[in-house]
Structures are given as C-alpha cells and as structure tokens.
C-alpha cells in the first residue's frame, strides 16, 4: 500500500512514495540512493544501519519509513561539512577504526549519538554512581558502543578513535 512521505536526509528534502512495509533503511538505500547506512543483519542486532533521527541514534532497519514521515535523518555521509570530515570520522581514519569498512558508517553515527548522550549526562550499564557526573573511560566507550558489531574486530581502533574525540 503506497504512501507518499517526505524525509530530510543529510540536509536535503526528498519526497518519495513507499509501500507501508518499507523500512527507513530500504527507503534511504533503494528509494533515495543514500548508501551510507548499511544493511547488515536487518534484524536490529548488528548496528550497521545506525542513523541519527533528530539527533538520536536509532536502527533504520527496525523503523518503518511511513512512521517517520517528515523526519530529519542524518547518515554518516552527512556528518561532515563539504570536504571537511566530522571529528569522529577523522579520528576513525587516524586510529584505523575499521578494516573492511562495512560497519563504519553505523559505528560513526552511533559514536556521534553516544557522545551526545554522554554530554547530556546519561548513565550507562557500567556507570557506578547513577547520580554523579559521567566519566567517559574505555569501559564506558565499550559498553555504550556494544550495539555496533565489527566483524573485522577493529574494536581497539574504534575505542581509540572515540577516546581521542573525548580528549
């Protein structure tokens, strides 16, 4: 059942017609040709499809496009300004935070969303004192990034990259 929706993706407004069954991920990739978010498991288990929805990190594979009519979506490709890379993307390059690169756009979006959550003093599973200011150490980074799987095992580089952004 077709519905016409609008999405603002990486600053650009698009109108597109989708079947109600279309996920946000398929609408971005197949509907709009925005290939930065990746389809990994397609079941919300790997994090490769992570995008920012109004600034919050979410899984585009479990979101229905029709339920996000009018939404503002930022993908990893839309984080930088022109040729200037976003600091998180720059740090991934500097720290070898990837090997094959398939999970990387999701990792970067997740890291950007996660850093904003930490900025808002959101605690995590490893935060000892739920009422004290959050101190972002390696354990915090690892816990908060646990929803993004990297099959190449580039985790030390990913943790290093995020740690540098935090410094």
């Amino acid at each position: 059942m077709d519905t016409t929706i609008t999405l603002k993706v990486d600053g650009e407004r698009h109108e597109l017609t989708v079947d109600t069954r279309t996920t946000l991920l398929d609408a971005l990739r197949d509907g709009l040709g925005v290939y930065s978010p990746k389809k990994g498991c397609d079941h919300g288990q790997c994090g490769a499809c992570t995008v920012l929805l109004a600034g919050r990190r979410v899984l585009a594979c479990l979101a229905l496009a029709v339920a996000h009519d009018g939404a503002e979506v930022t993908t990893a490709a839309g984080l930088g300004r022109g040729d200037e890379l976003h600091p998180v993307a720059r740090a991934f390059l500097d720290h070898d935070g990837f090997q094959c690169g398939y999970c990387t756009p999701g990792q970067i979006c997740s890291a950007v969303g996660m850093l904003a959550e930490a900025e808002r003093e959101w605690p995590s599973h490893v935060t000892e004192d739920l009422e004290a200011p959050v101190e972002m150490d390696e354990a915090e980074i690892r816990e908060r990034m646990s929803g993004n799987i990297c099959r190449c095992g580039a985790y030390p580089g990913i943790v290093g990259a995020i740690g540098e952004v935090l410094r």
Binding site: G44, G47, T50, R56, R57, V58, L59, L62, A63, S110, G113, M114, E117, P123, S124, H125, T127, R144, M145, S146, G147, N148
Partner: peptide, 12 residues
C-alpha cells in the same frame, strides 16, 4: 533498563 539491549534500541 541500562542492562538491556543497546543504545540505539533503547532510543526506540
């Protein structure tokens, strides 16, 4: 809550 799922899933 913080022991469940992932950051992305908890946001949804």
């Amino acid at each position: 809550l913080l022991a469940g799922a992932s950051g992305q899933l908890r946001n949804m």
